[in-house]
Design a protein around this nucleic acid. Structure first.
Lengths: 148, 148
DNA sequence: AGCATGAAAGATACTCAGTATCAATACTTG
DNA sequence: CAAGTATTGATACTGAGTATCTTTCATGCT
């Protein structure tokens, strides 16, 4: 798992400054780690403005240190990246995020040059679950409709 | 491909009315078919208010007649559903949408009960491509970064 | 240490996507 | 046709994020 220092170094390596605001923000963010919204950060980080929170998120996304995912209802969420390319398993109840990567799937999608000369330039996979914790805590699992 | 009449029937079967606004909207929507934004519809359908456009979109989504997808940058887009569960191949240039379904992938994701007792309740797969048309018309393919 | 300079921060206004509210209108059915 | 409910439109609002612009901070230089 990346530490605050690791991330600050990565930021500096990218030619950006390791400022106090960024450090404070990263501390909050690292404490959350898996699955949070931008507005949660805005609310939790004291003394750092909304704009800066969003700017920093954008910076981290560009550097590949953070990733943005989409819940079933389309709501955005963020999660720290620990590795390169991966996908997400998100709990629809608590928003916790686990990463996963299945080379089989990667390969299928990559090969999917869709028979018609389309060049695959990327993909996104999100798997929605009810995590063990929420399953116990919880009400019955509503068999949520698929995406499309 | 679903016709306007098919969709209106489905709406009625769901206990909703097949009104003039809905018909006009569906005509525009069917003419677009694959890949459009809500605001495009708002702009194109004459004499139907914004609220009604969004309400109808929501209705169609609930009925599974329309699906909402997410571009690489997170921008939302809609596409008529022709079949049940499927995923999307979206051109990052022109926004055209093709559907696809790979039972292999479905199975893998379904089985992904993630070793830890999480119940999979859904998933979303989006594949981003440059379609043949845009590839020809186009500038060089920028090797877009993956999701996360 | 003092200062110049550019990056970063904060405040705020704005955009885009979508929802809520509520009064007015359109359907439908008895 | 009247009653009653669904639908509509206008409009205000929310949530997520960006743009702008002025101030502040970090850095390198002397």
């Amino acid at each position: 798992m990346l530490t605050v220092e690791d991330i600050l170094h990565a930021i500096e390596d990218g030619g950006y400054r390791a400022t106090g605001s960024r450090r404070r923000l990263l501390e909050t963010l690292a404490a959350r780690g898996e699955g949070f919204t931008a507005e949660e950060l805005v609310g939790e980080v004291r003394g750092v403005g909304r704009a800066t929170v969003y700017r920093t998120i954008r910076l981290l996304l560009r550097q590949g240190l953070l990733c943005k995912l989409t819940l079933q209802d389309g709501a955005p969420r963020y999660s720290l990246s620990r590795v390169g390319h991966h996908h997400h398993v998100v709990c629809v109840r608590c928003g916790a995020v686990r990463d996963f990567r299945q080379s089989v799937i990667e390969r299928i999608l990559k090969d999917l040059e869709v028979g018609e000369g389309s060049a695959v330039v990327g993909h996104r996979i999100e798997v929605y679950v009810v995590c063990p914790g929420c399953r116990e805590a919880g009400v019955a699992t509503s068999p949520t409709a698929a995406t499309g």
